[in-house]
Design a protein around this nucleic acid. Structure first.
Lengths: 208, 208
DNA sequence: TCGTGTATTTACCAAATGGTAAAATAAATA
DNA sequence: TATTTATTTTACCATTTGGTAAATACACGA
């Protein structure tokens, strides 16, 4: 038995790799839609095209799937922030960060909704990861932005709230897609324009 | 039997009024935390201090509680936008709108998370209400903002995306409170500053 | 092709969950 | 006070759900 969380696994076979990926992809679909409590193993099994006992052959249980999924996505989710470069031009760096976050929301809406849902219901699973990986990175990048402002290369404002507003505005397009779709039902140029608008918004705030 | 959805109800007694409110308040707590699928009648019953059969004496079922709750909150939720006044000073009006939304997020975080969760998982219940009540209001207020911009009283930008960014940035403080709390764990002036930051952000965008 | 470990299915379980029927209790009214 | 009506409890039920045991089918190297 593979038994996911056991460390000293030999070599995951092709079938194992394929099925674990199938399960995690199905779980992403289901967990991002219904949350941990609302999701069922039967849903995940159906989505993955496997039987329920079969997915329990690859994972120790519902929680194991969930935790594995969150872990697997967190690094990718933090990448855009990690790429904020102290050596670059401040405004360009921030606008590029906004664009990267927007691209991620557009390209990985399910991942965005998965995280959003987790945090919405209290981050019970995410909290350890947020503290371990996210918090230090957040602190460091806020300090960087503060430096840019102190040296007059960026209009002064609260770096923390700046970050919050960048996440909020970009992830909004993934997390609230259902609402946006309803509101823009008849509008012609639906979906586009976000990138230009956000550039305008944050340029207006940060340009010296 | 009261039987919630039945229209020709006589007069709700004091007990009925009190218990229905208790149940809806408990449901707000539970649904906002776990979503419709994740919430259970037992949780709601425990939170309300009533037995499960007893809450089913006041409501037709889980879905009835949920729908009643969404309906009861929607008007309140739309009020800040409704108050956008064509006769006021444009920038002042918008900044006041931002402040009202921020106040609502701070004062009613459970309501904010309830709606956020609903939309996150596809707005299956909300969609009709959004189309009926929200969409026309949204359209009207976007047109108003567009007028302000066309007459040069506001810096031109996309009104729809402006609205999206106002909702995103303000509701973020309710919907992602768990994350903010973790990230600001050590910071001293936690929680405050949002109002000033958002005023700066949207002033920078909209000032002519 | 044979055997051995891998993968999958079948048949279950116990607990949780949404919901009901009817008895018992409390309020209101005649 | 008697009696009717509104409310609450007790005892259930059928389905769903997370999970398991054991039997079966499959892959793959010797």
């Amino acid at each position: 038995m593979p038994d996911s969380s056991s460390q000293p696994a030999k070599k995951p076979s092709r079938i194992q790799l394929r099925n674990r990926k199938r399960i995690l992809d199905a779980a992403l679909e289901v967990f991002s839609r219904d949350g941990f409590r609302g999701a069922t193993l039967d849903q995940i099994a159906a989505e993955a095209g496997l039987s329920k006992p079969n997915i329990l052959y690859y994972f120790d249980g519902k929680e194991d799937i969930h935790v594995t999924l969150l872990n697997a996505q967190l690094d990718t989710w933090l990448d855009p922030m990690l790429a904020l470069d102290a050596k670059g031009d401040p405004l360009t760096e921030i606008l590029a960060y906004v664009q990267r976050k927007l691209d991620m929301a557009r390209q990985f809406p399910r991942e965005s909704r998965l995280f959003a849902g987790e945090i919405l219901r209290g981050a019970s699973f995410m909290a350890p990861y947020l503290r371990r990986d996210f918090q230090p990175l957040f602190e460091a990048k806020c300090a960087l932005v503060q430096d840019w402002m102190d040296s007059g290369r960026l209009q002064a404002c609260d770096p923390q709230h700046l970050m919050f507003s960048i996440w909020a505005t970009t992830q909004h397009y993934a997390d609230f897609a259902a609402q946006i779709e309803i509101l823009q039902a008849d509008k012609p140029k639906a979906g586009s324009g976000a990138s230009a608008y956000l550039r305008q918004l944050f340029t207006g705030l940060l340009k010296v």
